[in-house]
Amino acid sequence: MPSVAGYVKKAEEQKIPISQVILAEQSREQEQPREVLEEKMRQMLQVMQESAREGENPELRSHSGLTGGAASKVMERARQGESLCGPYFGKAVARALAVSECNACMGRIVAAPTAGSCGILPAALLTIMEEKGLSEEKAVMGLFTAAGIGTVIASNATVSGAQGGCQAEVGSASAMAAAAIVEMMGGTPQMCANACAIALKNVLGLVCDPVAGLVEVPCVKRNAMGVVNALAAAEMALAGVESVIPADEVILAMKRVGNTLPATLRETAEGGLADTPTGRSIAQTFFQQEIR
C-alpha cells in the first residue's frame, strides 16, 4: 500500500519534490513517458480553468434552482478589493464556489477526487498561480503531488461520501490541495505531509448530508470551506508547524470514523441538513416537481 511517509522518504532520499516521485512511479506503472503524463495533467488543469470561468457566470442556476450565482457575488467583492482577508482569500473562495456551481449546473469538471469536491483543488491552485505569479508547470506538478496524496487516501481509506461521509470527499480534496500548495510554495516534502495531515484532521467527522440527495446543499459551500482549510493548513506547515499525528495515521483515523458514521450521514439524504424542516420541505417540493 502506498503511504505519505513512503513518498516523503523517497523524495528526501533523492532530494526531489513529492510530485517527481509520483510522476516517476506513474510513468513506470502506466508504461508511459513522463511527458505524456505531464501533458495529460496539463489538460486536467485546463478543464479546471474552464470550469472556474463558467461557474463565475452570475446567471448560472442548477436544475433545482438551489444553487448558482454565489461565485459571481464573492468574486465581485474580491475584485473590488473588499474581501475580508485580501484578494487571494476572496478569489479562492469564489473559485471553489464557481467550480462546484459549474458541477451542480451540469457543466464540465474534473472529479478531484470526486465531483462533489471538485472545487477545492482548482480554487487553491489557480488562485495561488495568479497571486504568486507561478508558472503553469508548477501547478501541473502540484496536481501530481495532490494526486499522490489522493491515491494514498483512496488506497488506505476512501474518497467516497457514501462510504466515509464528507470528510472523505471534501476532507481528502482539502488535504490534497494543502500538500500541493506547500510544494508549489517551495516547502519540503515533510511540510507537504504536515499540511495534508493538518487539513484532514480539521474536518474529521464531517458528515455527508445532501438536501434532497442533490450535489448542491451543502456541498457547494463546503468546497469553499475546503479551500480555506487547505490554505490554513498550508500556512501552518510552511511556517514549520508540525502535525502531532502523522498523515498516514490521520488517514486511517478518517477511515475508522467513516466506518462508525451511521448510514443516515453517508450520502443517503436521511440525516443532518437533509433532515431539517427546511431540508425536508425542499426535498418534498423537489420530488413533487420530479414526478410532474
Binding site: 495529460k40 495533467m41 451540469m106 474534473v110 472529479a111 465531483a115 483543488l121 489522493g150 491515491t151
Partner: peptide
C-alpha cells in the same frame, strides 16, 4: 493506482454515479 482516477475523470456534473 492511476493518478488520473484521483485527478479525473473529466465529466459533466453533478454526480459521478447519477450522471457519469
Amino acid at each position: 493506482m492511476n493518478v488520473f482516477d484521483v485527478i479525473g475523470p473529466v465529466m459533466i456534473g453533478p454526480s459521478s454515479s447519477h450522471t457519469a
